[in-house]
């Protein structure tokens, strides 16, 4: 027994076991400081841009919405105002046209509502000279058009581009051409992300060829594209989602920051 305990081999084995114990201890200490979970990306399946534009053609013809159930308003005194909504603009008269409305809490987020369409549960029923009439649960509500208020509230309010009364056209052929030849895009325009507090704020146009298709669309050097189809362009993913779905779209709206003022450019794809 004494011989065995003094043997060289046993000493070596003992030392190796001590080293194994030490390395295991080292691993356990390391484990204490390391994270226990990995990173997972949550992916939205079947993503489609939530943008919806009003079909102007439908607005100029009687709405398909069943309005038979609504009683025609005879006296203005019967109506009540909707306090948390504001009327930014309107077009049309009586049963034709649309209204641009926003919530007072978020005046920058405007919505275009056609006659017969619903906004926050209120159905747009009628358009007058300086107000629109909504209905809800059988009751009529007036939303008055107050120009001064909207001007005062938001200095940097979204303004429509001057191109063709705010709506410009894009040829689908052009889109297909650029889809097949993406390198041609970067010959005409150069875009770089703009970071703010470590996050992407938008995409700045660093260079634009004056004779390019992009310049013809009203884009300018220095513009920061912050939204496309009401989607905040705060990631490359958002941009690529628009790019991937562009064939499915019939309209595109871009919100650009130009001279510190938001400007909305609306395009119809034909």
């Amino acid at each position: 027994m004494n011989k065995v305990s003094n043997s060289k081999m046993l000493q070596i084995i003992t030392k190796l076991l001590i080293l194994i114990a030490l390395s295991k201890l080292f691993a356990l200490v390391l484990l204490w400081y390391l994270p226990g979970n990995g990173i997972d990306v949550k992916i939205k399946k079947n993503y489609r841009p939530p943008y919806q534009r009003v079909n102007f053609t439908n607005m100029l013809t009687p709405s398909h919405t069943d309005t038979k159930g609504y009683k025609k308003t005879k006296q203005m005194g019967e109506h009540r105002s909707i306090t948390d909504m504001t009327l930014v603009g309107l077009y049309g008269s009586k049963n034709y046209g649309y209204a641009i409305v926003a919530m007072k809490s978020n005046l920058k987020k405007t919505s275009i509502i056609g006659v017969g369409e619903t906004y926050n549960g209120y159905i747009l029923k009628e358009i007058n000279n300086d107000n629109v009439v909504f209905t809800k649960d059988g009751k009529n509500y007036i939303l008055r058009f107050v120009k001064q208020k909207t001007k005062n509230v938001s200095i940097n309010r979204v303004t429509h581009d001057e191109i063709d009364n705010g709506v410009a056209n894009i040829s689908r052929q052009d889109i297909k051409f650029f889809e097949k030849n993406p390198q041609k895009i970067w010959k005409q325009i150069a875009i770089k992300e703009v970071m703010e507090d470590g996050k992407i704020k938008g995409f700045k146009i660093m260079r634009i060829n004056k004779n390019s298709k992009f310049a013809a669309l009203g884009l300018q050097k220095g513009d920061i594209i912050i939204k496309a189809n009401n989607i905040d362009l705060t990631s490359y993913k958002a941009v690529m989602n628009i790019y991937k779905n562009i064939n499915k779209l019939s309209e595109i709206s871009l919100v650009v920051l130009r001279n510190n003022t938001e400007k909305e450019l609306v395009y119809e794809i034909h």
Binding site: A27, L30, L31, L34, P35, G36, N37, G38, I39
Partner: peptide, 8 residues
């Protein structure tokens, strides 16, 4: 070594 945790 906790390789999985090192990977995390």
């Amino acid at each position: 070594a906790p390789k999985v945790n090192i990977y995390y």
